[in-house]
Simulated scan of single mutants.
Amino acid sequence: MTTSTPTPQIDVRRSADRYASRFGWLDSKHSFSFGHHHDPANTHHGLLLVNNDDVVDAGTGFDTHPHRDMEIVTWVLQGSLVHQDSTGHSGLIYPGLAQRMSAGRGILHSEKNDSWRLATDSERPHDEPVHFVQMWVVPDERGVEPGYEQLEIDADLMSGSLVPVASGMPQHDGASAIRIRNKYAALHAARLQPGQSVELPEAPYLHLFVPRGAVVLEGAGPLATGDAVRLTATGGQRLTATEAAEVLVWEMHAGIAS
């Protein structure tokens, strides 16, 4: 991990240029190298290694699999997702709920469209897909105790401002919804109506993702659903919605050493 000052840059990445993995039950688009998509020139930005935009069919999902030494934040846009892990935690993740899993020294977990869980004799299982963004950042300490946390923040998003979703930064103590184990990183989210705007924080590394809607970023122009911007050694730009939009912004004050 490094805190040296990088060269200023605004790098727009369009939705159509993302890697895509399609397996029948899963439509996944990757902002960085992931799985069999490996590009040594596109492995991370700042501390962010994964920004996957996933749609999972009803009754399907990711079977139990391992993780280690990673902070994993899941943000649901539509539908709901069931999480279960080897530490005994389970949870139903839905829009407006912040969720974090710290893999630490090792954890097993599964994630499935919640029609898999809700099918009972008295309820008909729904057939809606679940759409979510999953983001991975490196922790600032390896081999810690695995952990899980989730918290409802939907009411905070009604403000139209950038809301801390997950953070390890000291200034967000008592303000961020959930804590992650990296003191240099924070995730913010905003739901914007047409004409509403927010100001990006200033940081050595920012990653802006537009999972739905359309916005205009000062200095970069229009951004549509699925577009992303990697900002380096900058910040303070205005981001204005041109239609109803949801945005995710990683603020990072360190990067991964080369």
Rank of each mutant, 00 (worst) to 15 (best):
D27E: 12
I153L: 13
A185D: 10
M252W: 07
N182Q: 12
R238W: 12
D156H: 08
D27Y: 06
D156G: 08
H67V: 10
W250P: 11
T240Y: 07
S110D: 03
S167V: 02
A186E: 00
G168L: 08
A189C: 10
A257D: 14
H126A: 09
A103L: 05
L77Y: 10
R13M: 05
A177H: 03
R191A: 07
V138S: 08
G35E: 11
E246A: 06
R238M: 14
P146F: 11
T240E: 12
T225Y: 09
G61N: 07
V210A: 03
Y148T: 01
Y19E: 10
G61F: 09
S15H: 10
V137I: 13
R105N: 10
L48R: 02
Q84K: 15
A203V: 11
G236M: 06
A214W: 06
G88S: 00
V137N: 01
S86G: 04
Q9T: 11
T64H: 08
D127G: 13
A220Q: 06
L200R: 03
N42G: 07
G88H: 01
D156Q: 13
K183D: 15
Q193W: 11
T234L: 01
E199W: 01
P139W: 04
P170T: 14
P204A: 04
I153S: 08
R238L: 14
A214S: 14
G24C: 14
D54Y: 06
N52G: 08
E128H: 00
L47R: 09
K29R: 15
P6W: 11
S167R: 03
R181L: 15
V165H: 09
Q171R: 14
W250D: 07
D85T: 02
R68D: 01
D69E: 02
G91V: 09
A244F: 00
V215F: 07
H172M: 03
T87Y: 01
H83P: 02
A244S: 08
W250C: 08
I256F: 05
M101H: 03
V82Q: 15
Y205A: 05
S4M: 15
A175V: 15
A228Q: 09
R124M: 13
G143Y: 00
A214R: 13
G221Q: 03
G236Q: 10
S115K: 00
L206Q: 04
E123F: 08
D127F: 07
A103E: 07
V163T: 10
I153R: 09
H207A: 04
W25S: 08
P211S: 09
S21I: 04
D121K: 12
D173S: 06
A257T: 15
G174L: 00
P201D: 06
P6S: 14
L231P: 02
F209K: 06
H172S: 03
H188N: 12
H83Q: 11
V229G: 04
V82P: 06
G236W: 07
E71M: 05
E251M: 05
L108P: 02
V137T: 08
E149N: 02
K29E: 06
F62W: 07
H131V: 01
S159W: 03
E145T: 14
L92R: 15
L206T: 00
A254K: 07
R13K: 14
T234A: 10
D63K: 13
S31K: 02
R117S: 15
A220S: 06
G46A: 11
M70I: 02
N52H: 04
A203N: 04
T242K: 02
S197C: 12
E202Q: 13
P170E: 13
Y94L: 10
P194V: 05
